[in-house]
């Protein structure tokens, strides 16, 4: 998809080619088809309007993803204002102790984390990303949002606390749970070797 010419404006058709990629990206973050489609639509419209500003220094994909990230952050902020704090509190409370079972009472691992063989090579594997997406979607909604803001949209924890109106401690707790669940899911479904990787 990165066959964009280095200079000159991008044609409508070329922009349209990025729609499936952008939709997949938006869907992972927003978990809602309608919201994701709207965000992508707005992104492509914004790109059409400002395509003269696209320098060609970065790839068109990177440029479009940058616009989309801003749209997603706006949507998250809007959601945070509309959503009741209750669901977040329930999620924080009900998730407490979720990962206790991974540890013995004295705090040692029950099952020691094993080395993941040549992990960076997996980033080239399409199937790895399918599993990654499935795993990411298993996180509870608010936990996922904190994680997406932190790792995909580049927000600081301060920004996440402010946007989601949670304390720094709760923010760290949510990010911890997000990473733990993603790690566990990847270990079981990918690195554990139960999956045909060819």
């Amino acid at each position: 998809m990165d066959n964009q010419t280095k200079s000159g404006p991008i044609s409508d058709g070329a922009l349209e080619e990025y729609r499936p990629y952008l939709l997949r990206y938006a869907l992972l973050q927003l978990r809602d088809n309608t919201l994701a489609e709207d965000a992508v639509q707005e992104t492509l419209l914004a790109a059409l309007e400002s395509r003269s500003k696209f320098s060609g220094k970065s790839s068109a994909k990177t440029w479009l993803t940058g616009i989309l990230k801003h749209k997603i952050i706006d949507l998250f902020r809007k959601q945070a204002k509309e959503a009741t704090q209750v669901s977040l509190e329930v999620e924080l409370e009900s998730g407490a102790g979720d990962f206790d079972l991974l540890f013995q009472p004295d705090g040692h691992w029950n099952t020691w984390p094993q080395a993941w063989a040549d992990p960076l090579k997996n980033l080239e594997n399409k199937k790895f990303w399918e599993i990654f997406e499935i795993c990411a979607k298993l996180m509870p909604a608010n936990t996922a949002r904190a994680f997406m803001m932190r790792e995909f949209l580049g927000s600081s924890t301060e920004e996440i606390c402010k946007d989601m109106q949670i304390s720094a401690t709760n923010c760290w707790v949510m990010l911890y749970r997000a990473r733990m669940s993603l790690r566990l899911c990847l270990e079981h479904n990918w690195f554990g070797g139960n999956f045909e990787r060819k």
């Binding site: 020691w112 984390p113 080395a115 980033l123 080239e124 790792e151 990473r179 790690r183 990847l186 270990e187």
Partner: peptide, 23 residues
Amino acid sequence: CEGCRHFRQHMAFIRRACQRYPD
């Protein structure tokens, strides 16, 4: 603790993966 060394690598990998999604 080798287990925790692996865990640290897993966390670093997850961060890296998110930054590279999807190439």
